[in-house]
Simulated scan of single mutants.
Amino acid sequence: MEIFGSTFDDSVFLEARDRVCVSLSSYNAKLCEPEWFCDNAALDTEDSLEKQKVYKFRGDLAMKQGNYQEALEAYSSCLEWIADNNLTIRRDVLEGMARSCTKLGQRDKALELANVLSKEASNTCHLTSLLLLKVSIYQHFGAIRSKMMSLQQLCSLLPFNPWHWFNLGQMCLHLLESKTTTVLCESARELNVGEAEEQQEEAADLDEDTIWLKACTCFVRTRLLLRILRQQQCSFVLQRSESTLQTTDEAIQRLSPKEKTLQALTEVMSEDLIPEKMREDYQDGESLASVCVQSFRDRWWNKILLNGVLETDAEGSWKTGWK
């Protein structure tokens, strides 16, 4: 009776055959001079892919150097040579064109390009890039309500990303400190044509008290998220989180909410901060068809305001010490 594993194939003990050495042809790497794509000779080719690369590199370089008109022209030329199935480069070029138009003051064209990207978005990465693009466009043209809407959408799409919450809180705090909240009461003409009615309603109630409360909410959420994430961080990443935590604490002190208000906000904004959920929900690259994103109002704002969650003072105000 043989014990399992006690026998071996005879081939194991045979001498190894001489390996046949196959002579491979030498590989000569292509050497390119710095900024080779700027030479007119780089376009002397019938290869559409090469032309695409040349125009794309020219656009990127011009954008980096601040030559936005030149960048826009290069990106526009590149777009003509992109294959229909090369969606990644197409989106990159369209975004470059939108940012160039923004720098050139061409607001309508920039928003038109952003709208094209919106129609072609197929996953959360695409939508995140689109919203960040919109934030930069609205920031450049002073469209405050639209910028706030885009930041709120980012917070709803990626609820466990502390930096979007921090940016939204910083924006609200800046509005309060610069005394520019009155601009939010102007007409909704700054909103991009085609915005959903629900989004316009969310942007409508932006009086000073609401902005103050929204600032407190965002900084509380930022603090909660950073305290969780810093346990897994080190080096310069941890340093950045610690610095942002300090800035966040200072902002909350500046806003000086009541203790009960702060406690109520903390309870509402920490309800979904469950480790398992934070790992699995809203993963980057997830198909938009499988993502159900609640609006900022439905997910957090209504909970805060529901049934008078926040205790007011004798004058009916939430705030204390804010000037």
Rank of each mutant, 00 (worst) to 15 (best):
89 I>W: 07
60 D>T: 05
261 T>N: 06
167 N>M: 01
147 K>S: 07
15 E>K: 08
319 K>D: 12
119 K>V: 09
81 W>G: 00
103 K>I: 06
316 G>V: 12
231 Q>H: 11
193 V>T: 10
155 C>M: 08
319 K>Y: 13
182 T>H: 08
18 D>Q: 15
81 W>Y: 15
7 T>V: 02
168 L>H: 04
7 T>Q: 03
46 E>R: 11
267 E>D: 14
100 S>M: 06
290 S>Q: 02
127 L>I: 04
198 E>D: 13
121 A>Q: 05
313 D>N: 15
296 F>A: 10
322 W>K: 10
267 E>T: 14
35 E>M: 09
103 K>E: 15
173 L>Q: 08
227 R>S: 14
253 Q>A: 10
233 Q>L: 11
45 T>P: 10
98 A>P: 01
107 R>G: 01
216 C>D: 00
84 D>K: 13
10 D>G: 05
265 L>W: 04
164 H>F: 15
246 Q>H: 11
169 G>R: 01
82 I>D: 02
251 A>M: 04
266 T>R: 06
292 C>E: 15
154 L>V: 09
82 I>M: 05
104 L>T: 02
50 E>R: 14
167 N>Y: 02
141 F>T: 01
322 W>V: 13
299 R>D: 13
40 N>P: 06
14 L>F: 12
194 G>D: 04
265 L>H: 03
85 N>T: 15
20 V>G: 01
84 D>L: 11
280 E>F: 04
159 P>E: 01
300 W>R: 09
152 Q>P: 03
63 M>F: 08
161 N>M: 00
101 C>M: 01
19 R>P: 01
104 L>K: 01
306 L>C: 14
175 L>Q: 03
247 T>F: 04
